[in-house]
Simulated scan of single mutants.
Amino acid sequence: MMPTIGPAWASYTIEEVDGKVVLVQQQTTEEKPVISNAGSHLDASVAIKTEHEDSDSGNLFSITPDHTATIDIYNELFSAFYNVPINIPTTNIAASLTHSEQFTKLAEDLGCLGNLPNLRSQINATLLLHRHALLRAIKNDPARWLLLSLSLHNDSIYTEALIHMSGAHPSWPWPTPRSSLPEEIVRLITAKSFELNQRCTEIERDLLLLTINVGRGASSHPVSLLVNSEFDTWFVVSTFRSILAQEFTNLHDDDKGSLRRGTMYRKIWKGEGYMPYENMRRMMEQVMPSAVQNLSEDLAILKREASAYVKDLAKNEALLDVEGQKYQTENLQDLKAM
C-alpha cells in the first residue's frame, strides 16, 4: 500500500516484528498508485510477510477462509488512506461496536490511527446513528466504550461513560473489568465520585431542612409547632423530612446504594413516585386527621421546593442512572475531564 506522507508517496509492507504486526515503510516514490474501492477483496499488491522471510522472495502470507474477516479489515483500513469510505455494519449497536474496535485496534497496532482522521470521523458518525441504542449500550458497559472513545477522540461517548462509572463508584456492575482502564482514568473516576458524593451530601442536608414559610413580608417565618394554627402544617413538614431521612439512611447503609440513588433523586426531581398523596392522606387520617384538609397544598409546596434543590443533579438521567432505560442527553462539563 502507498499512503500519502507529506508531499511524497510512501510504500509499506505488513511485517511481523518482535511478534507484532506493524507497517514498515519502504522506498519512497513520486508515482501516485492507482487504488480502487475493492470492497471486501484483498488487493494483490499488498505484501504480507514476517521478519524471517527473504525480502526478495515475494512470498505472500497464506490467506485461508478463517482469515477473511481480518483481511477485510486490513483492506478497508488501507483504503482509508485514500479516503475510500469504510464499511461498518449498522444492523445493531453490538455489530457496530465490534467492528469499530477491530478497526481502531488494528490502526493503533500498525501505528497509523493518528494519520487517519477520516477513519475516526466515519466511525464516530456511524456510532452516533444509533442514538438511544448507543446510550443504552454505554450504560451496559461504560468501561469498554470509554476505551474506544479514547482511540476515537469522541468527547460525547467519553463523557457519557465517565458519568456512569463516576456515579456508580465504588460499585462495578459491568462486564469489562475496572483493571482494563488506564490508571489515570481510575483515579479520575475516584475523584469525580468524591465530588459527586459531596454534592449529594449538601443536597441531602438542604432537603432535610425543607420547611414551609407562613405569613407575609417581614412577618414571614417557618411554620412552628409552638403556634396552634401552624401545627398541622408543621406536622406535615416533619413527616416529609422524616421519610426522606429514612430513605437516605437506607441508601447509605446499602453497599450498592450508589446504584440506586439516581432513581431516588429523579423521583424527587419529577415529584412522582415518592410520598404519593393517597398514601400520605391515609397515614394522616390515622395519626393527624386535622392535617388532611391542607395536605394536598402542603405536600405540593414541599415537593416543588425539593425538586428545585435536586434539579441540577438529576436533570441528566445518565448522571446517576445505571438501571433505567430512558435517557436525556445533556452535557455535564463538571464530570468531563482529562
Results as ranks from 00 to 15, higher is better:
D72W: 09
D72Y: 09
D72M: 06
D72A: 10
Y74D: 03
Y74E: 03
N75C: 13
L77N: 01
L77E: 04
S79E: 10
S79H: 11
S79V: 04
A80L: 04
F81E: 04
F81M: 00
Y82L: 01
Y82F: 07
V84Y: 07
V84D: 04
P85T: 07
P85Q: 12
P85V: 09
I88M: 00
P89D: 11
P89M: 01
T90N: 14
T91P: 04
T91F: 07
N92G: 06
N92Y: 07
N92C: 08
N92H: 07
I93F: 00
A95T: 09
A95E: 11
A95P: 02
A95S: 10
L97F: 15
T98Q: 14
S100W: 00
E101A: 06
Q102C: 12
Q102V: 07
Q102L: 11
F103D: 03
F103E: 02
F103C: 00
T104Y: 00
K105E: 08
K105H: 13
L106G: 01
A107T: 07
A107W: 03
E108Q: 11
E108S: 13
E108R: 12
D109V: 03
D109R: 08
L110V: 00
L110T: 03
L110R: 07
G111D: 09
C112M: 10
L113A: 01
G114W: 08
G114F: 09
G114S: 10
N115C: 15
L116Y: 07
L116K: 02
P117Q: 11
N118W: 05
N118G: 14
N118Y: 08
N118C: 10
N118E: 11
R120V: 03
R120S: 08
S121I: 07
Q122K: 12
I123D: 01
I123S: 07
A125T: 14
A125H: 11
A125R: 09
L127D: 05
L129N: 13
H130R: 01
R131P: 07
H132N: 14
H132L: 15
H132M: 15
A133R: 13
A133H: 13
L134A: 05
L134H: 03
L135I: 13
R136I: 13
R136M: 13
A137F: 00
I138G: 01
I138Q: 06
K139F: 04
K139T: 10
N140D: 14
N140H: 14
D141I: 02
R144W: 06
R144F: 06
W145K: 05
W145D: 06
L146S: 01
L147C: 05
L147G: 01
L148Y: 02
L148A: 06
S149Y: 02
S149G: 03
S149F: 03
S151L: 10
L152Y: 05
N154I: 03
D155C: 10
D155L: 09
S156Y: 12
S156A: 15
S156I: 10
I157S: 00
Y158D: 01
Y158K: 10
T159K: 12
